[in-house]
Amino acid sequence: MYKATITIRLKTSVLDPQGNAVKGSLHSLGYGEVRDVRIGKTMEVWLDTPDAGEAEGRVEAMCRELLANPVIEEYEFRLEKGA
């Protein structure tokens, strides 16, 4: 069993309105040093797969096919061996 923790966020070239709003709020709260905020989402996917290499390939495919939209989003993930 492997657990994949996948992070998906908007590409840096795409304007992130939520991140901008949060940045504005942080500034108004006095966190003036905040240069940028990007908001994304995290997914945890558990796979019944014995092999790390296979798990990596499958997660990569899931991200491309469904979990991220390549037009505006980028993704990264890490795998952990689970019980």
Binding site: L10, P17, Q18, A21
Partner: peptide, 10 residues
Amino acid sequence: PGAMRVNDHL
């Protein structure tokens, strides 16, 4: 072609 994002005013 293209994609949809959240409205700019959220």
